[in-house]
C-alpha cells in the first residue's frame, strides 16, 4: 500500500470530518449578534458594492422600464403626460349625428320635410342661401309664415343654439357642423360653415328672439 500523498490524483484526501465542518461553519453564522446585542455591520467594501448595484438598478429601471406599462415595447418611450391630444373631428360626420338627434323628427331623413306642414331642406333656397340668414334661423328659430321652394308653410321652428328658450342648447361648433352637413346633403350645394361665423352672429345678436321670414329676408 502506497504512502498517503496529497499529490496523488487518484484520491483527494479530506482534511476535516463532516461533523466538525458543520459545527465550525455554524459557529460563524451563529456569532453574528455580538455580546452587546449589536449586529455585525457588513464590511464596508461589500456594503459599497451592494449599495452601488442597487442604486444602478433603480436608476436603470426608472429610465428604461417604460413605467412597467404592458403596452410600452420601446425602452426609450416617454410616458404620457396625461393631457389627451385634441383630435380633429369631421364636421360632416358630427353634423349627421346632430341632425339625426335634433332635426330629423320634423325635416325627415330624406330632408324633404312634410308637405303642407314642415318645409323641405333638400334643394331649399334658405339652406343654400346666404349664410347670415341660415345661421340665424337655426340658432334662434323662425316663427310665422315662410315661403320655401314656392310653397307656403306656417309652422314654427324652435331655437336650437345656446339662446333663451332653446330646447337643444347646441354650441356654436355644433350649429356649424349641422349646417355644414345639411348644406352638402341631398344634392345641396351650399359651402361649409365655420364655428367662427356662427360665433360672430351669436355675439352680434345676443339674446335675440325668434326671427320672422320678413326680418331674415332683409339681411343680406
Amino acid at each position: 500500500m502506497n504512502a498517503p500523498s496529497q499529490s496523488d490524483p487518484r484520491l483527494e484526501q479530506a482534511a476535516v470530518t463532516d461533523e466538525s465542518l458543520l459545527a465550525a461553519h455554524e459557529k460563524v453564522l451563529g456569532r453574528r449578534p455580538d455580546d452587546q446585542g449589536h449586529y455585525r455591520l457588513l464590511p464596508l467594501n461589500l456594503l459599497f458594492v451592494f449599495a452601488g448595484l442597487i442604486f444602478f438598478s433603480g436608476t436603470y429601471l426608472n429610465l428604461y422600464s417604460g413605467h412597467f406599462n404592458p403596452a410600452i415595447y420601446n425602452e426609450h418611450a416617454k410616458p404620457h403626460t396625461g393631457a389627451a391630444e385634441a383630435v380633429a373631428v369631421d364636421p360632416v360626420a358630427l353634423g349627421k349625428k346632430i341632425f339625426t338627434g335634433t332635426c330629423q323628427t320634423c325635416h325627415q331623413i330624406t330632408g324633404l320635410g312634410l308637405p303642407g306642414a314642415i318645409p323641405p331642406l333638400a334643394g331649399s333656397e334658405w339652406v343654400m342661401g346666404p349664410e347670415e340668414r341660415v345661421i340665424r334661423a337655426v340658432m334662434y328659430g323662425v316663427q310665422g309664415a315662410i315661403k320655401v321652394k314656392g310653397a307656403d308653410f306656417s309652422s314654427a321652428m324652435p331655437p336650437n343654439g345656446k339662446v333663451p328658450g332653446s330646447g337643444f342648447n347646441l354650441s356654436d361648433d355644433k350649429i356649424a357642423a349641422v349646417l355644414t352637413y345639411v348644406r352638402q346633403e341631398w344634392g345641396n350645394t351650399g359651402g361649409p360653415i365655420t364655428t367662427e361665423q356662427v360665433a360672430a352672429i351669436h355675439a352680434k345678436e345676443g339674446e335675440h328672439k325668434q326671427w320672422t321670414s320678413e326680418e331674415l329676408l332683409k339681411i343680406q
Binding site: P4, R10, L11, A15, V16, S20, L21
Partner: peptide, 9 residues
C-alpha cells in the same frame, strides 16, 4: 491509496 484520517476542523 489509503485514506488519511481527517482531523477536526
Amino acid at each position: 491509496v489509503a485514506f488519511r484520517q481527517p482531523a477536526a476542523m
